[in-house]
Amino acid sequence: MVKTIKLPSPKFRLHLNKLQLANRGFWAVVKKEVGDHLSGKRFLILSLIVLVTCLGALYVAASTIRSNVSQDELDFVFLRLYTTAGSSMPFSFLSFIAFMGPLIGLILGFDAINGERDRRTLSRVLSQPIYRDALINGKFVAGVIVIAMVIYGLGFLVAGLGLILTGVPPTLDELLRLLIYLTLSVIYISFWLALAILCSLLFRQTSTSALAGIAIWLFLGVFFGLLAGIIADGLYPVTDSSTAEQIIANDKAERLLSRVSPTFLYNEAVSTIMNPSIRTLGLVLIQQTYGAIKGTLSLGQSLLLIWPHVVGLIAATLICFALAYISFMKQEIRA
């Protein structure tokens, strides 16, 4: 027995259209989540750590540049602020963001959905007239907004302080490289945010999902490179008497495997874009450098070199988010 049912009245359809146009539910979620993140204590603590370490890296970089300015060329001084590490501080701004960035993403997302379940707010929120995906989309977008605020904020803060410390203004090329670098960092950290949201759907306990996120971070950041090396050595063993072909094959295999990890992709891409003197990724033979003129790559050429990396990072982020999205849409709501 199927009963005839009313279709939405024209008035309501109009209202629905308006609702869809404005997508109020989505923006309400974004607004609330951004507010929560920015006023939350754990986010404040993490931002302070990142801020202090980055300023430390900047200070060391600036003093190193000043003391080396006579010996070194003056090319791309502005970019060196981000990439130079000193003896007292073995990390540059670049390596700090590469190291801490994933942590920001994980902290913003690890309790996205299971936290709502814990607080028993999920069913209450979803019983409001919003689409179910408005919640997860809103949370992701809010996280990306906060990440962008932190990364661009830090990047430009360092730029401003660097100007004061070194007194060398950036060229347009350098400024564009900086913008590309910061954007890449936002995409990379968004990958970790999407991964954290996925963990928050797969695990019911917030502590479990946080630990799972950190485990993946450690695996991709530290162990994956080792693993790639071991596999490459197994495929193409290299000994003292190996030929150049074998060594190249080994190196290629290791790089190829390593590039599965977004961490490696990001590190390669970022160091290429921030260091115009990097002209190729991978091994360079002495024959190839013979007769080459020392110089730097233009922005376009650097970009071309890392284009696959950029695509890969965006794809990894979207795949992670898509998995989270699908799993959220299929999950039971009951608390």
Partner: peptide, 11 residues
């Protein structure tokens, strides 16, 4: 809808 054991954002 008022769920069983209704929850709110504590902060």
């Amino acid at each position: 809808y008022m769920p069983d054991n209704v929850g709110f954002y504590e902060e």
